[in-house]
Amino acid sequence: MIIQVNTDNHIEGTELLNNYVTTLFNEKLQRFDSHLTRIEVHLSDENAGKSGADDKRCNIEARLEGIDPIFASALSDDISKAIHDCLLKIKRGIEHHLDKVKN
């Protein structure tokens, strides 16, 4: 599974952030590894660096073998919370899709 982290001009895409996201996603999505080919994580600041409520966005696109991508999005005041909330959504989406395919 390939994990790609993208940031906008207002979120600094440091090596520390990339390692954090990669490690987190590898741990939480490990059981889907045989189905997932690629995960794209897009992090952005909706208010262009100014403070505001729920201005940090995390979008995740999960690509599974042989089907259309699954997409999830989350907003929060904190980028870490947005990442965790979005990860839970994408995990549920993957579980739902795989259950549908199995049945």
Score class of each variant (00 low, 15 high):
85 D>I: 05
33 D>V: 10
65 E>N: 12
38 R>S: 11
12 E>A: 12
72 A>M: 08
58 C>S: 02
53 A>L: 10
100 K>E: 13
101 V>G: 05
102 K>M: 05
60 I>D: 02
93 G>R: 11
101 V>W: 08
8 D>N: 09
61 E>N: 07
58 C>K: 01
70 I>E: 06
68 D>E: 15
52 G>N: 07
16 L>I: 13
3 I>R: 00
18 N>V: 09
49 G>S: 10
99 D>F: 06
53 A>R: 09
66 G>Q: 08
88 L>C: 08
45 D>S: 00
82 A>E: 03
87 L>F: 03
64 L>G: 06
24 L>V: 06
6 N>T: 14
91 K>F: 08
17 L>A: 06
45 D>L: 05
58 C>H: 04
47 N>D: 09
92 R>A: 12
4 Q>I: 15
22 T>I: 11
87 L>H: 00
48 A>L: 10
35 H>A: 12
24 L>W: 05
70 I>G: 02
40 E>W: 05
30 Q>D: 15
20 Y>P: 04
41 V>E: 02
16 L>T: 13
78 D>Q: 03
94 I>H: 01
54 D>F: 07
71 F>A: 08
6 N>H: 14
67 I>K: 09
55 D>T: 15
2 I>A: 11
47 N>Y: 10
12 E>C: 08
31 R>K: 14
31 R>F: 10
67 I>H: 10
45 D>Q: 02
59 N>F: 08
74 A>E: 02
68 D>T: 13
32 F>K: 00
42 H>W: 10
31 R>V: 11
93 G>C: 08
29 L>P: 00
39 I>W: 04
35 H>G: 00
22 T>N: 13
69 P>V: 01
96 H>V: 11
15 E>D: 12
76 S>R: 06
32 F>I: 06
20 Y>N: 01
35 H>S: 14
11 I>C: 04
11 I>Y: 03
56 K>Y: 03
72 A>S: 14
38 R>N: 14
40 E>A: 08
44 S>T: 11
81 K>P: 00
74 A>M: 04
4 Q>F: 09
5 V>D: 02
47 N>E: 07
78 D>E: 11
79 I>Q: 02
25 F>N: 03
103 N>S: 12
52 G>Q: 07
46 E>M: 15
50 K>C: 07
66 G>K: 08
13 G>Y: 04
80 S>D: 13
14 T>G: 03
7 T>N: 08
60 I>T: 03
38 R>E: 15
92 R>S: 09
95 E>P: 05
14 T>A: 02
80 S>N: 12
43 L>Q: 00
54 D>P: 02
99 D>Y: 09
73 S>H: 06
45 D>V: 01
68 D>Y: 12
26 N>Y: 08
7 T>W: 04
67 I>V: 13
48 A>Q: 14
9 N>I: 07
